[in-house]
């Protein structure tokens, strides 16, 4: 259970309170600059809010050391850059403590294909796949036990359609085991299809929280994104009906 209590962050987040239960894949949507990345980084305990508190399973994040936090949550922030010519194997060894990619991750992310190539020479999508593997791998024990927390900032950026779907399926699998996954996403159709819960953010405020069918509402989205949108109802309804 992840709980945030009136989080404020100068000019980025305003009075955000939310409670997210485990076992769900929560999508964070909103226009550019809405505060999605800031919120994720506060929820990850990396950025300290100006006021308000975040707690995970009743433990306030600010009472945990960086090392303690690493043991309970995985956080994929946006870009990865290095000035050194590290290989993917180096990245996985240093940041995930793995000599090879765990099978369950490799099935979805397929990073074995460029295991010994320099990270800098990979394409943006390939780098993103490595970044995801490196975020998930050290947390695998918790994820398998179903008590992990994953915070992913635009994990699908740069991924081709095959890997978008395999990633979302993997996240769905982990969510079903009881883990809490919070990810930002710009593809509303994918959110409609894969999210258990959607958080709609605008100008640093939480506008709406709820099931995809309630939050992905044409008039609300058109207003928040300042762009006339039409929701292709059958998709949302169909998906929603298939859910318990």
């Amino acid at each position: 259970m992840l709980h945030a209590d009136s989080i404020c962050l100068a000019q980025r987040l305003r009075e955000i309170s939310l409670t997210l239960a485990g076992g769900r894949c929560v999508h964070l949507i909103g226009p550019n600059g809405a505060g999605k990345s800031s919120l994720l980084s506060v929820l990850a305990g990396v950025l300290t809010p100006d006021s308000g508190q975040v707690s995970y399973n009743q433990i306030p994040l600010d009472s945990l050391s960086p090392a303690d936090l690493t043991a309970i949550r995985g956080y994929q922030a946006q870009g990865l850059h290095t000035a050194f010519s590290l290989t993917v194997a180096d990245v996985m060894a240093f940041f995930a403590g793995q000599q090879r990619c765990p099978d369950v991750l490799n099935q979805a992310l397929e990073i074995d294909l460029f295991w010994s190539r320099p990270f800098n020479q990979l394409s943006g999508g390939e780098q993103r796949r490595v970044h995801l593997a490196m975020t998930l791998a050290p947390l695998l024990t918790q994820l398998n036990a179903g008590n992990g927390l994953l915070l992913l900032d635009e994990p699908m950026q740069g991924l081709d359609i095959r890997h978008q779907h395999s990633l979302l399926a993997l996240l769905q699998y982990f969510a079903k085991r009881g883990n809490l996954i919070v990810m930002s996403c710009h593809d509303l159709a994918l959110s409609a299809r894969f999210a258990d819960e959607v958080l709609l953010l605008d100008q640093g405020q939480l506008v709406k929280q709820g099931k995809p069918a309630d939050t992905l509402n044409a008039s609300l989205l058109s207003e928040v994104f300042a762009c006339p949108l039409d929701v292709f109802q059958p998709v949302v309804r169909q998906i929603d009906q298939s859910r318990p």
Partner: peptide, 10 residues
């Protein structure tokens, strides 16, 4: 190697 943010996260 991947910058201060990654070091903090890890």
């Amino acid at each position: 190697y991947l910058g201060p943010l990654q070091a903090r996260i890890h």
